[in-house]
Design a protein around this nucleic acid. Structure first.
Lengths: 337, 337
DNA sequence: TAAATTTTGTTAATCGATTAACTATTTTTA
DNA sequence: TAAAAATAGTTAATCGATTAACAAAATTTA
């Protein structure tokens, strides 16, 4: 690649010092005469000057880059949130470096190190299960960061997340209002707080409606026994000799697998069973019945994440916790129509 | 953030010059005595030295970063290829900066400029429709880059893509072998070469089988009239008073929309009509019939893309064109079983 | 009018690492 | 043993931009 035009080239051409050029090109015009400012800007444009970020960063200690560690690049949530974050970052003149932890702690750590090594100015993290220790280390290291989608209530960090507790309650309320009294909840058995909040919301809402939320209805799936556990859970829910049941799936992956098994069993949705999924999925597109599901306010999350991170970067003691309300898309999978 | 440990800190502590430290830490150990090399490495480890990429880049003019411009971050193809590229890039000690053009030419140009401004060492591009001019400019600018998935046969660039011509023929052959003689092809009307190759493959294969590939069967959809054109195309295909037809959709988005409309029409797949999709989609997951589709060799594409780009970066006159063979996943949407 | 202030610049150090060019010492070769 | 070569380092310039500190000239103030 050819060498680019440098500040000095402009300075030479304009017969002034490099400092003057730097001032003019960085909003410090008032330090030189209007004439000179104009001359420099004209020449810069003529030579098609592009500032050399690297050199600037070396001096300013800022790279105008933020690091984003997502849980898995192929989640639907990821693509949406990435897009929103990049858009907002661009507005503030930041680029985004993305890494995917694939939900694995070692990769998560690696990525943080790589990004910090690359001198990102700050980090937006979707922490993986069991990463509390790492997050605490990160606080100590003085690296500006915020958590997103997932967080640890006991660790005082800034975060932007969904109000999962509230969303879960709303789903139960919705099903209860439709006359359901047998509402199952199928969740991963992960220790992640945002997932536990979903279960807590379910349980509390069921109690409030005086409906059962015991082990018969409140199910967990181990990732390493995904298929088996899912089958067992659904078999048990369907075995209850009572009125038409409903299942709330705590994630899209759970919903897809669950609905597939319900299909295998010949259960019709919503005639034989109602279904709600916490997240949406492309897989619902061609399903014979539109699936009622939550909708994460991705744009808003992305926007707030970037804005909050910038605040944190600019002011060490910013500490902001945001819980956003989930949207709710009524399909037909609860027999709505 | 705290100041990091610098080369100089190590030099001071070890009582040697910074140059010596630099040599030792960059595989030039032979320039100093084993003793000293050992002492320096010990101290570097003790102080937890992390090289300052920015400073290094300023001097070496390399950032060890490659830029990737995808067509749309939410395509399934994108997530897969991104993952593959990042993995391979990491092996070669490169980071990846990603941008999404959303199939829009102005965004595509912007992104290239942003990435070049950020001093990426090279670019992997999925060019958008009508971007020939920009690609030619890029060649002139001496920026190392390769094209991926899409390319322009008249522009001498390196590229990694699918053999779309061949894949389309294979689908026709497959349908013909199943006894189909009415095979429709539904494609976008875009001018992009990789899409035209799909149509060309279809037409040539139909001719070879002495089957009709005229306007009745060979359909195009305008993006700006997507729904209308799709309905018309499918209505016409279904209106042909003849035996059971088949449709090959030239992309997953076309397939999803098409299958939805077939559903609306009450057409059963594969009883009333056979369907093949060029690309796979998550949306097929919950469809009542597994959809027969192509499968792009993502890992291989990503690997070859990074390797080729590195070759191009290291050696100006590398010019490599690679056409990979698509995979083929037989579902049941052609009445296979 | 003299002092103080503002305007309009410049100079030079600096960020952290790389590397060509050099020196001094030791070892090898002929 | 003298010359050549290898070994073991160091010095100092450099990458491109930023910015504190300075200085000369012009303008304002008292």
């Amino acid at each position: 690649m050819k060498r680019k035009v440098s500040l000095k080239d402009i300075a030479t051409e304009a017969n002034v010092s490099a400092a003057a050029v730097s001032y003019v090109l960085n909003g410090q015009e008032h330090r030189v005469s209007p004439d000179m400012a104009h001359r420099i800007k004209t020449i810069a444009r003529k030579l098609n000057y592009r500032p050399h970020h690297i050199a600037r960063s070396l001096k300013t200690r800022r790279t105008n880059t933020i690091g984003l560690v997502v849980a898995n690049i192929s989640y639907r949530f990821t693509t949406g949130i990435t897009r929103a974050i990049e858009a907002e970052a661009k507005k503030h003149n930041y680029s985004v470096l993305i890494g995917s932890s694939d939900e694995e702690l070692p990769k998560f750590n690696d990525l943080i190190n790589v990004l910090v090594d690359r001198d990102v100015d700050g980090l937006i993290l979707l922490p993986v299960d069991q990463s509390e220790k790492e997050i605490k280390e990160l606080i100590k290291s003085d690296t500006p960061f915020i958590l997103m989608d997932r967080y640890f209530p006991d660790i005082p960090t800034s975060y932007i997340a969904l109000d999962n507790y509230r969303a879960a309650q709303e789903y139960v309320d919705y099903l209860a209002a439709l006359g359901h009294s047998n509402v199952a909840f199928i969740n991963y058995d992960a220790s992640m707080y945002h997932l536990r909040e979903r279960t807590r919301g379910y349980v509390d809402a069921m109690k409030r409606h005086k409906l059962p939320a015991n082990a018969k209805w409140n199910k967990t799936i181990r990732r390493e026994m995904f298929d088996d556990d899912m089958r067992k859970a659904i078999d048990q829910v369907c075995a209850q000799p009572s009125e038409k049941p409903a299942i709330i799936f705590a994630s899209d992956t759970l919903a897809i697998k669950g609905i597939r098994y319900l299909n295998e069993l010949g259960k019709r949705i919503p005639e034989d069973i109602s279904v709600i999924s916490f997240d949406e999925s492309e897989a619902f597109e061609l399903f014979n019945c539109p699936v009622t599901h939550g909708r994460q306010p991705l744009e808003e999350m992305g926007r707030m994440a970037v804005q909050t991170l910038i605040d944190v970067m600019e002011n060490e003691n910013v500490n902001r916790q945001v819980l956003l309300r989930s949207g709710f898309v009524k399909g037909g999978s609860c027999g709505e129509r």
